[in-house]
């Protein structure tokens, strides 16, 4: 007997603050529908400001600036609801699936003063720091984008278990929200026949 569903998984390791990790893989050939997606992470503090872009067959489902925490579900939710289920399943057939996870990506935009004096819409070019997706090529594999001063201040000392928030003027953060590196992010794809 072969089941009509499968949870296909991709595992990413985030080793330092601001790291940007790209992956691509193929959907299992025995399944024809991508019905849902979820992310899983060892602790949720790492997610705020981190982003996750996702494409299937080079067509975008999530923009690179889609916040990762929107795809992670807490324990206060029924197990069958711990996924973002697509209202229209995405047809797949050994399809190319691509994703890009960027740690603390949005924090890096907070110090940017190049907008109107009061603020405003952040341009796509600034949000999507690098154009990662280029047809047929893996342009960025594991590169770290340049971390600006603001991000360093926010994300603390970076790699190592002692890392965490180190910003001077900010109130003491909740210890649960500290970011320790490395941590893993798992992408769970819900496939069906």
């Amino acid at each position: 007997m072969i089941l009509g569903y499968r949870f296909q998984k991709v595992k990413l390791r985030i080793s330092k603050a601001g790291q940007r990790v790209y992956f691509n893989t193929e959907t299992d050939k025995d399944f024809t529908m991508l019905k849902g997606i979820a992310l899983s992470v060892g602790y949720e503090g790492a997610l705020y400001g981190s982003t996750f872009g996702f494409r299937v067959d080079e067509k975008e489902i999530f923009d690179e600036s889609h916040e990762a925490h929107l795809l992670v579900y807490s324990n206060d939710i029924s197990p069958n609801s711990k996924m973002l289920l697509f209202e229209m399943p995405v047809p797949v057939k050994s399809s190319k699936v691509e994703g890009i996870y960027t740690d603390s990506s949005l924090q890096s935009l907070l110090g940017n003063a190049s907008y109107n004096p009061s603020g405003g819409v952040i341009s796509r070019n600034e949000v999507n720091i690098k154009k990662t997706y280029v047809s047929g090529k893996e342009v960025v594999k594991f590169s770290n984008f340049t971390v600006d001063d603001n991000l360093v201040a926010y994300a603390g000392s970076g790699s190592g278990f002692g890392g965490g928030f180190g910003i001077g003027a900010a109130p003491a953060p909740d210890p649960a929200a500290q970011v320790y590196y490395p941590y893993d992010v798992r992408v769970i794809l819900f496939l069906s026949k």
């Binding site: 990790v21 060892g42 594991f142 893993d184 798992r186």
Partner: peptide
């Protein structure tokens, strides 16, 4: 606890090979 699968280094995408 911050690494799935008990940290077994099955990571496909671990360029730095962090000795976690």
């Amino acid at each position: 606890p911050l690494l799935v699968d008990n940290g077994e280094d099955l990571g496909v995408f671990d360029p730095g090979k962090v000795d976690f």
